[in-house]
């Protein structure tokens, strides 16, 4: 379909699309291509040495692994919170509802300090976990914990409206047809929630990849063990190695883009399966 044919139905296609492209260029595309351009000043061989160094590889592993894990944990437990908020009316519900948004609002460094204070070896909870042989702060577990904290509202806020929109008649229909509560959940509710859950997962995951402030406090930043990729970029910058930092950033950029694209495709697929398209 040509743009001209579309214009007849919904006016303003040319103008709005032009604006969209320009806006995305200025705000997103140009800064990102500057990163790629900067790294090209290194030359292939040198760039490869930077991005494929064992230290860099370990940091990718931690960044992507912890983000995936945290996003997955959020889908399960955030889903539970969203369910409770959407389904039940209880005293203090408004308070809990407001609490959910706190990780959005808090400066990430504050979150990091708070988490370290609680889960650190001498912290309120960390003390007991340490005694039980579980080390949270200054370990990959701590990184995952911080990312879970940061990503939680993304999952809850995408799932909650979908849960609230679910027609109670549909659940009644399942019950009348002889489905147990579990079967109703598994065959009727869950499929309706998958698209929103995927979106929440993607958002939490993307946020986790870029997170820096809250992690630097709780991770301890030990190279090869608890050093995240964004921190590695930061370290390069502090050493005035702009090209090296840019090369690392480009890798992160490409990897995130590919992952998000995959998740988006997956989401589009579940949506057509759900017949919502």
């Amino acid at each position: 379909m040509s743009a001209a044919a579309r214009r007849g139905v919904l006016p303003g296609f040319g103008l709005s699309t032009g604006f969209t492209v320009l806006y995305l260029c200025l705000v997103v595309l140009v800064p990102l291509s500057a990163v790629a351009l900067r790294s090209s000043s290194l030359g292939w061989q040198e760039a490869w040495k930077v991005v494929a160094s064992p230290r860099a590889l370990a940091s990718y592993r931690l960044s992507f692994g912890a983000s995936l894990l945290a996003a997955a944990a959020n889908v399960v437990f955030g889903g539970l919170v969203a369910w409770v908020l959407a389904r039940y009316r209880f005293p203090g519900r408004a308070f809990v509802d407001a609490l959910v948004d706190l990780p959005f609002a808090l400066p990430t460094a504050v979150s990091g300090i708070a988490l370290t204070a609680v889960y650190g070896p001498t912290g309120f909870i960390g003390r007991h976990l340490e005694a039980a042989g579980v080390r949270v702060a200054f370990s990959p577990l701590g990184v995952t914990l911080a990312l879970t904290f940061i990503g939680l509202p993304f999952v809850i806020r995408t799932l909650q409206p979908v849960l609230e929109d679910l027609d109670p008649e549909v659940e009644e229909a399942a019950a009348v047809l002889g489905a147990s509560r579990w079967e109703t959940f598994r065959h009727v509710l869950l499929p309706a929630l998958v698209p929103a859950a995927t979106t929440g997962f993607a958002l939490a995951f993307a946020r986790g990849l870029g997170e820096y402030g809250s992690i630097v406090f709780i991770s301890g930043n030990m190279p090869m063990r608890t050093e995240i990729a964004p921190l590695l970029v930061m370290t390069r910058l502090e050493q005035f190695d702009y090209a090296g930092a840019a090369a690392l950033a480009t890798v992160l950029l490409l990897a995130s883009f590919v992952l998000l694209l995959t998740i988006n495709r997956l989401q589009a697929w579940t949506r057509t399966r759900a017949g919502a398209a």
Binding site: D167, E172, A173, L177, G178, A179, S180, H187, A274, A276
Partner: peptide, 30 residues
């Protein structure tokens, strides 16, 4: 669930992510 009564709801309450066939088969499948 235990009464084995057929109910047609006002807004039909069809399962959106299931085909016509899967909707009709639901009670038999469970």
């Amino acid at each position: 669930r235990e009464r084995n009564v057929g109910v047609v709801f006002q807004h039909y309450a069809l399962f959106r992510h299931m085909t016509v066939e899967e909707n009709v088969a639901f009670a038999l499948r469970v």
